[in-house]
């Protein structure tokens, strides 16, 4: 049987995939004080990845994006936990957060917070967990 190639789906995925990924990163940085953040950004990134897996097949995407999602969850958790520990060296309770404003080139005055690496950890955990769950179920038949 000839394998059908959903051309339209491929083309649309290539475009929307990028839009979703970009927007998810925007959401990730928007978070903390506005709606958004690691959890929502991570879910949206995962949705873009799932779209890729749906449109192309699991094997070829695995070649293109060779992530081990278990490791991704572990790295994400480690980043979040260690961010919380940093404050302890200065005598603050665990998970205390700090922020300040800095003049950065190109970006101008920017708020940098320790909540950002914490959120990055959450982002990685959410992406890793969602993808691992979906792929484990998807690979069940094989």
């Amino acid at each position: 049987m000839m394998k059908s190639r959903p051309i339209q789906f491929h083309v649309v995925t290539r475009i929307t995939g990028f839009i979703i990924l970009t927007f998810s990163i925007f959401l990730f940085f928007a978070g903390h004080n506005n709606p958004g953040g690691g959890f929502i950004g991570g879910l949206m990134t995962a949705s873009a990845l799932v779209l890729l897996y749906l449109s192309f097949d699991v094997q070829s995407i695995k070649k293109a994006i060779p992530f081990d999602y278990t490791q991704m969850i572990a790295v994400g958790l480690a980043i979040s936990i260690i961010t919380g520990i940093v404050g302890m060296f200065f005598g603050f309770p665990y998970l205390t957060q700090f922020f300040d404003y800095f003049q950065l080139p190109i970006l101008g005055e920017t708020e940098l917070t320790t909540a950002l690496p914490f959120d990055l950890g959450i982002y990685l955990v959410v992406v890793g967990f969602t993808m691992l769950t979906i792929l484990t179920i998807a690979e069940d038949e094989a």
Partner: peptide, 17 residues
């Protein structure tokens, strides 16, 4: 106070790697 929770959590995560 947080140590008995924090240490196993951190080591557990690192052991996943």
């Amino acid at each position: 106070v947080v140590m008995p929770i924090l240490i196993p959590m951190l080591i557990g995560v690192l052991l996943l790697l």
